[in-house]
Design a protein around this nucleic acid. Structure first.
Length: 375
RNA sequence: GGACGGGUGGGUGAGUGGUUAAAGCCAACAGACUGUAAAUCUGUCCCUCCUUGCGAGGUACGAAGGUUCGAAUCCUUCCCCGUCCA
């Protein structure tokens, strides 16, 4: 993996670049749709390519490890072939499941003992094993096993957790280096900055991880219930301490109007389930604000979901039709809404990229902030 | 004409003397969702009032009357609906 910076905003820390992978070039800043179980829910890979056009998507180590099993995926030719996704894939390590499956896991120095949410069976994840699983899947960008801490957490808890995350990162990177020597393909590994909502811990963690000289870095442990300003603040602390010449990835964010804020901190990559999950739950993101499709005001609304969107859904179907499909519980609703919401996110990223390259990103950011203040 | 069965809040459908303004489901109307245990979850859902409270009052289980301290629940009559027999 190689990262190339094309333009940097003279005012903010925003930059535009290209990440070169074995599965294509990723223009940054980029938003990565989430496809946890080897599928972006609701859409076919072809629909994703044609209508959303993301150069990279996310998948998940924990889920694919449990089902169908990473060795099964490997024997079927790897994740790209298995799910018929020709472009890049980033796999999360299962660190987020340390947080979300809180009641089903036990953390030790060695790693995390999970009880499967599917059948209750016990499984151990270590920094080394999650690298192996991700390499078996054939991930282009692997993530180090981390502990995604809950919010709120005491400083002591945050420190303990962060120290462990650093040790795990060190083990993960070492193991990855060893494995890379015997593998011809190109698989990056990103450590993840933790530290709860404590700025000094975030800084300490970033510093320690930089010493590992990894191909790229992530900032995790955000959007776990803290106020939005805190997520921004923590990003603002950690991002500048990460190497300029390597991609920075903020995990699990955010709402559309927050994306520019992260980019302004020098973030290159983001992912979030919001566009896909909210689509399925009836919450559509548009250039003019949100559309809760079940609202009766859309019952006879012949307008597209977003008049400024060129996606398949918006260029053909009315809000009234989408509402009908949603209320009727039709499968097609999920497909059409997911196509639109993901397209909206990717369009926002493309706009920002163009703004950075053309030198107008500060204006773009100002406009976004003005709109937010008005709503 | 006769014999059974049945009429419950927008719909369905529990409830067969008091803890029932009346379960559940559906519909309707809102809200939540941030490295996906999510095509999920939550709230409201008779009317009025206020000190917004496991608050007060009113109306309500086809209609009217009755029994009872107390009735959606028991009795009487009537009106509807369904099935069957003439």
């Amino acid at each position: 993996m190689r990262f190339e910076i094309q333009a940097e905003c003279p005012v903010t820390r925003a930059r535009a670049g290209l990440i070169h992978t074995d599965h294509g070039v990723i223009p940054t800043p980029i938003f990565m749709p989430v496809g946890t179980q080897a599928t972006v829910k609701g859409v076919t890979p072809q629909q994703l390519l044609d209508e959303v056009d993301p150069p990279i998507i996310l998948s998940n180590t924990y889920h694919l490890f449990l089902r169908p099993g990473h060795e099964t995926v490997r024997s079927l030719g790897g994740l790209h072939k298995f799910m018929q996704w020709p472009r890049a894939i980033l796999t999360d390590s299962g660190g987020f499941q340390v947080f979300s499956l809180n009641s089903l896991r036990k953390i030790s120095e060695d790693g995390v003992l999970f009880q499967s949410h599917l059948d209750g069976s016990p499984h151990m994840f270590t920094p080394e094993s999650t690298v192996d699983v991700q390499l078996a899947l054939g991930s282009d960008i692997c993530m180090v096993l981390d502990e995604c801490l809950e919010y709120p957490a005491s400083r002591t808890a945050a420190k303990t957790s962060m120290d462990r995350t650093i040790r795990w990162a060190s083990r993960g990177v070492r193991h990855w280096r060893e494995r890379m020597q015997s593998i011809g393909a190109n698989h990056a590994l990103f450590p993840i900055v933790q530290g709860g909502m404590y700025a000094d811990l975030r800084a300490e963690c970033a510093g320690a991880l930089v010493d590992l000289d990894a191909p790229g870095y992530a900032i995790g442990g955000l959007s776990v219930g803290e106020p939005r300003e805190l997520s921004q603040e923590m990003t603002g602390v950690a991002a500048p301490l990460l190497p300029r010449e390597k991609p920075r990835y903020v995990m699990g964010v955010g709402m559309p109007d927050e994306l520019p804020e992260y980019v302004s901190h020098g973030v290159d990559m983001m992912d979030c389930v919001l566009p896909s999950r909210n689509a399925r739950n009836g919450y559509l993101f548009t250039s003019e604000g949100r559309v809760i499709i079940k609202h009766s005001e859309y019952k006879e609304d012949s307008r597209p979901v977003d008049p400024n969107c060129g996606c398949y859904t918006c260029s053909r179907f009315s809000r009234a039709y989408l509402r009908h499909l949603f209320l009727a519980g039709e499968i097609l609703y999920s497909t059409l809404s997911t196509i639109h919401n993901l397209r909206r996110y990717l369009d926002i990223m493309r706009q920002m990229r163009e703004a950075i390259i053309s030198g107008t990103f500060p204006d773009y950011l100002t406009a976004i902030r003005r709109d937010r203040a008005h709503t």
